[in-house]
Amino acid sequence: IDRGYRVKDVADLLGLTQAAVSQYLKSKRGQRGLDIIKKSDGAKRIVRELVDDLVAGRITIEDEVDYLCRVCEILREEGLIEGEGYAV
């Protein structure tokens, strides 16, 4: 959205519905995770790489899982999340 894409374009790119994208944009979904990611420069870097590669068509939506695993690894290393859930 920040790069000028419409909600429909973002939904298609991410394999989500337009309603889901709208809920993320309005912080009705994913806010807790976003707050955690904002605390980590490394995680933010990986998310930017993911967006760049998706927009450029260099990866598929299936490759997104690898990026998200890298984000989780960084957040665990930094003590921002633990195991399957969030750090308390």
Rank of each mutant, 00 (worst) to 15 (best):
E84I: 13
Q18M: 01
V55P: 00
A20V: 15
R76L: 07
V88F: 05
Y86P: 01
K28I: 07
G30F: 00
G33V: 10
E73H: 04
V65F: 12
L54Q: 01
K38Q: 15
K8A: 11
K8M: 08
K8Y: 02
L34N: 00
Y86W: 05
I37F: 09
A56I: 09
V51S: 12
R6S: 07
K39Q: 15
Q18T: 14
L75H: 02
R29M: 11
D2L: 13
G83L: 07
D9V: 11
R76Y: 00
A87G: 08
T60R: 07
D63R: 05
D12W: 06
R58T: 13
E78W: 10
D63I: 09
Y67F: 15
S27M: 14
G15S: 06
D52I: 05
L75I: 03
V71D: 03
V47Y: 05
Q23S: 14
A43H: 00
R45Y: 09
I46W: 02
K44Y: 03
K38C: 12
Y5C: 05
A19D: 12
E82K: 14
R70T: 00
V47K: 07
L75F: 05
E82D: 08
K26R: 10
S40I: 08
L80V: 04
D52G: 00
I36F: 02
A11G: 11
G57W: 07
G83A: 12
